[in-house]
Simulated scan of single mutants.
Amino acid sequence: MSPQPIRVLIVDDSAVIRGLISKSLEQEPEIIVAGTAMNGERALSWMRTNPVDVVILDVEMPVMDGLTALQRIQCDFPDVPVIMASGLTSQGAKTTVKALSLGAVGCVAKPQTASAAESIRVLSRELVMMIKAVAGKRSSTTQTVTPSSSVRTEAPAASPASTPLFKRNIKFYKQPEVLVIGTSTGGPKALAELMPQIPVDFPMPILIVQHMPPGFTEILASHIQKDSGRITVEAKHDQPLESNKTYVAPGGSHMLIGEKNGQKVTLINQAPPEHFCRPSVNPLFRTAAEHYGSATLAVMLTGMGEDGIEGSHEVARVGGTIIAQDEASSVVWGMPAAVVMAGLADKVLPLSEIAAEIKSHCLVRA
């Protein structure tokens, strides 16, 4: 018997946007638009009498706005994931980042192109994959991997393609000099939990790639600074890395680590997307491995797809340390699963235990 299609509720005060989102999904046989609503109040009323698997929620609406509706949905329907649809306005971006930190699983930008066909194509590419990932399909792999069977205990092969599942016995760590973090779907909420647990005087720079469009990452950096008390900025080109700062990759650009006049700096570029992502985790992890070698501490948090897997191979190849978030605590176990299944993770941990593991590494000397 064929599985039931994923039932989606679209909530937006614009009939045009509701129509565009509906059309972007209608060609996908595994998804049906079960209903639409023009504000949060009507959405909640509809959900009380109709089953739904995923809600696509506008940020700015009359009667009941998206942020209020999100909190009500989380209270009344805690198992239903919510994807925020945001216009690229300053206020829309602020509200969206707030919603993501509260537990919305992801966001998509509302169509900005003049062509309806192009808008539908862009929306379809983003939404279909995200809906499938969050609608109870949390693992991107069919193989179950437990922490005890997934950590590495020997040096990885140089070629990523030939790297098997193996274990490495970790006895000696080089004192980390940089912490790099990659995340995507579910990342803002994971960062809101993780970053306050890291001390303000944490003795190394922290660099974060969170998949987000332009205009959102500066606000994300402000949220992280407010939550953690640690100076946090949206990274700029040729910005010196300082031990007491956190750097967030700017939306729409890759963030790398380079050197200038003997000083480690952030490099920002517009190179092609990797795994359909810009920023991608790969350039950050690769250049961290290049410039810090075995003093690299990398963390892969919840996220859809496999972005960062090639960069993780580089971190492992040079002897760096990789921590992956476990399946149970991930919104989508895609990016960390790829690391685990490749045998690259030194530890596979619940989100609640990752900060303690990070801190423990900073106290261990080679």
Rank of each mutant, 00 (worst) to 15 (best):
M61G: 09
S159E: 10
M212I: 11
N269M: 06
G106H: 14
D13K: 15
D238F: 11
S90W: 12
I21Y: 10
S22A: 14
V315G: 03
V299R: 04
T183Q: 13
L284T: 06
G182N: 08
E306N: 14
N244S: 15
P62L: 10
F276P: 06
L70C: 08
S119D: 02
S184D: 09
D79G: 02
N50V: 03
P111T: 02
K359N: 15
I83E: 01
A328H: 12
R121A: 13
G35S: 00
R168C: 11
E30D: 14
M204R: 01
L344I: 12
M304F: 12
G293I: 02
L267Q: 12
V200W: 07
T142K: 15
E193P: 00
M129V: 15
D12E: 13
T146E: 06
A221T: 09
I120P: 01
Q325N: 12
A15K: 10
W333T: 07
G215C: 07
P336T: 12
T36S: 09
G186A: 11
A135V: 04
G87D: 07
V315T: 05
L241M: 03
S22F: 03
S2V: 08
S90Q: 15
D238A: 12
T163K: 09
E259C: 05
P78Y: 02
A356S: 11
S329M: 08
V8N: 02
Q71M: 14
H313V: 06
R230K: 07
P78V: 01
T217N: 09
D58S: 09
G308S: 06
V82Y: 04
R42S: 05
H275A: 12
V340S: 10
V339E: 07
P250I: 08
L25E: 06
A37E: 01
L191W: 01
L44W: 02
Q239A: 04
V97N: 04
D326H: 10
G103Q: 02
E28H: 12
G293V: 03
L267E: 11
T321M: 04
V55H: 00
V105C: 13
L102W: 06
R365V: 12
Q74H: 13
T146R: 08
V339R: 08
Q143P: 00
L297W: 00
D53V: 02
G66W: 01
E274Y: 08
G293C: 06
S140I: 12
R125D: 11
M195E: 00
P213N: 10
V332M: 13
L25C: 08
V331S: 08
R365Y: 12
V33C: 04
L297M: 02
S243E: 14
E310I: 10
V8E: 04
M64K: 13
D346T: 04
A190Y: 03
I17W: 14
P3R: 06
K347Q: 13
I83G: 01
P272S: 05
V55D: 00
L165W: 11
A135Q: 04
G187I: 07
I268A: 05
